[in-house]
Design a protein around this nucleic acid. Structure first.
Lengths: 206, 206
DNA sequence: TCGACTGTAGACCGATCTGTTTCCCCTGTC
DNA sequence: GACAGGGGAAACAGATCGGTCTACAGTCGA
């Protein structure tokens, strides 16, 4: 076996990872119109290497969106062993998103941004984005089912609308969300009869 | 007076209007990355004329976003003399938006798309977009105040989140919204105690 | 020391980008 | 008919686009 992966974690990761990291960062901050020259320069990778590792820019974009999936889920979704309360496990997502949205440099959900920018739902990066967003929908759906909601799919769809709307508005700087999305999500849960562990029902005031 | 504006409404509008119409269409359908060559060709206007009428592409984009404001408001906001019921005047917006979103070629709110694509809130087109979106917020705020809501600004902010989230998800083809946004808006109004003209209060089921 | 291999640097290609300029037709006025 | 001006067609410029290719430096095992 050739030592393509150095045994001791030394200076920098291999070109492929450097490319994906730079792509996730640049495409998110500056948009998918960022050129491959800028991308390769930021990654410290030659274009020759990039085109050996990927078929083209679109594939790099799709792979970068794929790559940020696990860390994004880890940051937004509650760990499987955390609180068992479905309501808490749903509101958790909105609380983490609002925390992220309060940071400087937040530009909304990277999947939604990519889909809006590309406009073509058939683009491979759009497909990856849609698939990853589906995981959050699945989380909402699972918890709504666990909570015994009458129409868990409606709950999940409503929560996704709240999530995308709030993150988008925060991402373009039009909204500061001090609990706005969490309050809206709580409203959705109240209407579905998904109450907290031992809490009472419809107490959320307008 | 030279006959720059022909007295009789003949074949085609002047170059400026043709440019703005083509810009609104192309930038919305293909994104703001559309080139000026394609724009001028679609408008039937020479680049020479375009750069005489506008300082550059960015100014054309901003002017095009400005131009679509009045017709968009006319299509989405209830006419001032229509129903006096604040709840109906709010839900009206979501019903019109869902109708538009059901049409082929819908790609979400053009203002939000532009802001997401440009990413720079200081871009003149982003400023125009933000100003125009503010008018819908003002409509929601006015009606929430008229309805005597305890926190009309919160109601307006929540409604904008629902509006942007639903239109964005419909625009990228991830959602079909059969009353989804209107139901969510109704939930917001219920929580704020904004009931219909003679209707009862909190009947919306999850 | 010698390939074999990997990866960087960067020239290069044709196409396209924004923006400028030239040329010329067409129309209205005198 | 002469002429002024608006505006379309298109060449042009310099930069950048996505993508290909050559040249060379470093590192490995033998």
């Amino acid at each position: 076996m050739t030592m393509t992966t150095p045994g001791s974690a030394q200076a920098k990761p291999p070109p492929r990872e450097r490319l994906l990291d730079a792509a996730a960062d640049l495409f998110y901050r500056r948009g998918t119109a960022t050129g491959v020259d800028a991308l390769c320069k930021a990654a410290g990778v030659s274009k020759r290497s990039m085109y050996q590792l990927f078929a083209g820019k679109d594939e790099v974009l799709a792979a970068a969106l794929e790559r940020i999936g696990p860390p994004l889920e880890a940051a937004l979704l509650p760990p499987p062993d955390a609180p068992a309360d479905p309501r808490a496990r749903i509101l958790y997502v909105f609380e983490r998103m609002e925390e992220a949205a309060a940071q400087a440099g937040y530009h909304g959900c990277p999947y939604l941004s990519a889909q809006v920018e590309l406009k073509d739902p058939a683009h491979q990066a759009s497909v990856v984005a849609a698939r990853n967003k589906q995981q959050m929908t699945a989380h909402f759906l699972t918890e709504a089912e666990r909570a015994g909601a009458a129409d868990p799919e409606l709950v999940a769809r409503r929560l996704m609308v709240v999530y995308d709307g709030a993150s988008a508005r925060a991402g373009i700087g039009s909204e500061h969300l001090d609990g706005l999305s969490a309050g809206l999500a709580a409203l959705v849960l109240d209407a579905a009869g998904i109450t907290g562990a031992g809490a009472a029902g419809s107490g959320a005031a307008g």
